[in-house]
Amino acid sequence: MGAVFLRLIVGIALTLIMGPILVVLIVSFSSGDALVFPPPGFSLRWFVEFFGIAEMRNAFMLSIVLALTSACASALLGLLGAIYVSRNRNGLSTFLQMLIMAPLVFPALILGLALLLLYKTVNMSVLPGLFIAHVVVCLPYAFRAVLTSLQSFDTTLEEAGQSLGAGPVRSFMLITLPIIWPGVLSGWLFAFVVSFGELNTALFLTGPGIVTLPIEIFSYLQFQGNQLVVAAASALQVLIILFVLVLAERLVGAKQLVQR
């Protein structure tokens, strides 16, 4: 009885969680003009249409570029922070860890508002401002992944390097980095994915001609654009994330991805 009940709840939960995403994926390949289920046929017309709309195309490109660059910046900053935190047990390391992890739970829209006020006051231009916001939001994910692998790294290996005459930087580059790279890579991938889907912080920070894909989808929806183009845009989002996840699984293994 208990087992059946448990399975039932798991089924309901999975349906609720995956259902909407699957619906989006399916209808985006519809050949029809409107949302009907099941779709009348299969076609890629809405994807073609999507790339035909300049705003959507630009938003897609911007999101990709932004995700690539901010993932690199986050991975680098996360690596630096994780090095310090993993090697020190003092006030600063606790503070740094809290500071880096804070944007993970901090209400994203409020962070966006605070950044917008600052940017307006110091006249920051849109693109760098947006980039920095993405870095701040992605940093906790990258940091956490790198920290996990640094904490399980055996530091006597670095001491061995030093005993052989390699300075701190050299032993880090030649020994530590090659060993922890799956952690850094999965941090990068996390950051990429988070940046690619980032929404609530960037809401206030986009500008004319500089709009990310999630926000373009959002405003399209709000102004009642053709819903099937939105479906295609959304499906594209999902597909890219799936692609990145599969890639990540291939490169660093599932274990590295789900551990936290």
């Binding site: 889907g197 479906a231 959304s234």
Partner: peptide, 16 residues
Amino acid sequence: VPLMVSNVVRAYGWVA
């Protein structure tokens, strides 16, 4: 997967 998909897409799923 759902954690990583943008919230706008998941909300749109319900709109759809």
